[in-house]
Amino acid sequence: MNPFEAVLKSLAEAGNMGWEILWPLILGFLLSAIVQAVVRTERITRLMSGTSPRALAVSAGLGAASSSCSYAAVALARSLFRKGASFTSAMVFEIASTNLVVELGIILAIALGWQFTLAEFIAGPIMIVFVALMFRLWLRRKIVDAARAQADKGVAGSMEGHAGMDMSVQGDGPFLRRLLSRAGLTATSRYFVMDWAAVLRDIVLGLLIAGAFAALVPKAWLQTLFFAKDPVLAFVLGPLIGPLIAVVSFVCSVGNVPLAAVLWNGGISFGGVMSFIFADLIIIPILLIYRRYYGTRAMLLIAGVFYLAMAAAGYVIELVFTPLGLVPAQRHAAVLEATISWNYTTFLDIAFLVIAGALLVLFFRSGSGPMLRAMGGSPEPGHAGVEA
């Protein structure tokens, strides 16, 4: 295969994957936007000031409701930490915001199977418990104080503007009435467009990397790397190797699902897939952001704790799912087998593209276009607390 053919094959694989997951992505971000538009969060952020089970549960719930791309989640976690949330609660929020979200669950079900979606919502809380326990053991007061001092310096990140925007509907009233009001629809369009703008780069990058892997990396090579023919070694090494691949792939959020499908087809263990998916918060660019936000010692602690927790969660979920018969026997990820044709996927893609187009039109007609500029830095005056 010459280089030109290799590029074309990689792009074709990426295009097929993108078309297969397009409607679930739009649906996931739409549901996320609806929740963010009508659920006020400032009333419960004060409950994140401790490390009690209740505080961590609130942090996880708030994170899941504030579905974000990894970069925005990291920026928002820093903002919550600066406003009084405990360091552990901020990290739990971060994990939930990228790994316990509806769009990831939908994409996993379409691309890999419902078993992976179930595993996400079971292994995610397991990872959170491990993180909380390890921070209780190893997080020293002087590290927290140094991290807070560094965070209070106001160093801006690439997603600081997005994280600082509160665009939810003000006031009380029935859920549907607030959602279907002019303010509710406008807020929904704002969250939908802003979340897409934040994560689009990672989705495209993830598809390109997964397309190149699928087209160019021999399946036999992956099976050797993951010891696919030795179940014991595959179980032991999968959750350790998975996060390391994520770290160097530079892909985060839902953008790593196509590559997870390639790794699953290539022979990585079930637990290895889950640990890979959870590792979106320790990719190299985000580790550098941690260092800028909290200092070197805190960054190293976060990296070590997260790695151990996601590997441990991978082991636990495979140990639980295997005897229950919930680990898929076949390795034929739907997202890798699909081709673009006139089937239900195409019709759903078209339908949801129409919905996305309508929200995009509403976004710009409401005068929200300047908000996109605020994603590169601190929110512009009037945007940080903008009312729909």
Rank of each mutant, 00 (worst) to 15 (best):
E94M: 12
A96C: 05
A96R: 01
A96D: 03
A96V: 07
S97I: 01
N99D: 13
N99A: 07
V101H: 03
V101W: 01
E103T: 11
E103P: 02
E103M: 06
I107H: 08
A109W: 15
I110H: 11
A111D: 00
L112D: 00
L112Q: 01
L112H: 03
G113Q: 02
W114K: 12
W114S: 15
Q115K: 15
L118N: 05
L118Q: 09
E120S: 15
P125G: 03
I128G: 08
V129T: 07
A132V: 01
M134C: 07
M134W: 09
F135N: 11
R136V: 04
L137G: 03
W138K: 04
L139R: 02
K142P: 00
K142N: 14
I143K: 04
A146Y: 02
A147I: 07
A147V: 06
R148W: 06
A149M: 15
A149E: 13
A149N: 07
Q150K: 15
S158K: 11
M159R: 09
M159I: 02
M159C: 10
E160V: 03
G161D: 04
G161R: 02
H162L: 11
H162D: 08
G164Q: 06
M167T: 07
S168K: 13
V169S: 04
Q170Y: 06
D172P: 00
G173R: 02
F175E: 11
F175Y: 13
F175C: 11
L176K: 13
L176A: 15
L176M: 15
R177S: 12
L179Y: 10
S181C: 08
S181N: 09
S181I: 03
A183N: 12
L185K: 00
L185F: 07
T186Q: 12
A187P: 06
T188V: 15
F192Y: 08
D195K: 14
D195F: 13
A197H: 01
V199K: 01
V199W: 04
R201K: 10
